Computed example of a mutant assay.
Amino acid sequence: MTIYLDVIWFLNFCIDFLLLWLTAVILKRNISKKRLTLGAFLGSLYVLFLFLDAAILYHPILKFIYSVFIVITTFGYKRFGYFVQGLFMFYFSTFITGGGILGIHYFLKSDAEIMNGVIKTQSSGMGDPISWLFVILMIPVMLYFTKRRVDQIEVRKLRYDQIMNFELKIDSITLKGIGLLDSGNQLHDPISKNPVMILDMTVFSDQVPEAVVRQAENLESIGELMDEPNPWQDRMRIIPYRAVGSNNQFLTGCKADSLNVWENGVKYETSNVIVGLSFTNISGEGEYNAILHPKMLSNAKVTSTAS
């Protein structure tokens, strides 16, 4: 059997380059192409060592030491934590990419065939070899998938960092839920200039007086509903707003008595808040049921802290 060592080396060089690039992207490190190329070249040399008749080259400790040199060559050594983070992320990128390729390969592969109505299976006991063509095609796919999943994890982590519990008091009603602190929410009451939070009425409608729900839900015919007894009539507001890609719209709101928000064990309390009543689900996955205004925390007072 003819082995084209140069082709095998070049393929491994490309794979090492992509894995190191993915590691740099995940860690958000600005690494030059020269260092990436040098690190990939050092990693690809290991393929040549495997053709030497030396059992020690297969030892896990030697492999680990070799990967340490690859990471230091590519990312440098600034401090121990910086180095360890790069090393573990390099292993993570390698294992998830290689494991994904193996998983897809065995998912698509079948060792069974039907002969004369009888299912026949065959196994060599050594596993099924993966073709180089399959590896070449799947490496970019797995790299793209890994990067997208890491990006989604980061977005979800950032979102959860901005999620906090709240307690809203309006008249004799207390509403408790989870709010998202959205810096893009700049909605204010045009009269009092108080910040406006958005409350998901698909969650809280059964806890709000029925007359309030009807007036808020039927804003276009609110004039016909004004004569209906409404315990929050003096609290009601009409708030104009403009969403991206749409014309000016209006939102029914009401003045709240107080709002308590907990962030990292710290309790913030404010009374200058207007609650916008939205009948559109604001979180498709149910992660939160209100959108908080950033000024609610900046203008609030700290009433208690976690011990």
Rank of each mutant, 00 (worst) to 15 (best):
Q233I: 06
L11K: 11
L259F: 00
D111S: 15
S271Y: 07
V150W: 05
C14V: 08
E263W: 00
D171K: 10
V118C: 05
T146I: 12
Y77L: 10
W21A: 05
S110C: 02
I26S: 02
L52W: 12
L11I: 11
M226D: 12
C14S: 12
I163H: 01
M89H: 01
L168H: 14
L48R: 06
G86E: 06
I130Y: 07
S32L: 07
D16K: 00
G184E: 01
I72M: 13
G179W: 04
S221R: 11
G276R: 09
A306P: 04
R242I: 01
Y77R: 02
N248R: 15
F17M: 01
I291M: 06
S246L: 05
A256D: 09
E113P: 02
Q215T: 05
L251R: 00
P240R: 09
M226Y: 09
V141N: 14
Q249W: 01
D257I: 05
R214V: 11
P229M: 08
H105L: 01
G177A: 05
T73H: 03
I65W: 06
G253W: 03
S131P: 05
K28C: 08
A243R: 01
E263N: 03
E217Y: 14
V203L: 04
L297K: 12
I239Y: 08
A24G: 13
K33I: 09
V275F: 03
G127K: 04
H59Y: 14
S124N: 04
G39F: 08
K169Q: 12
L36I: 06
V244R: 07
R159H: 00
A243W: 00
T2N: 15
E269A: 12
S32V: 01
N30E: 10
Y66I: 09
L251S: 01
N264D: 13
Y268P: 03
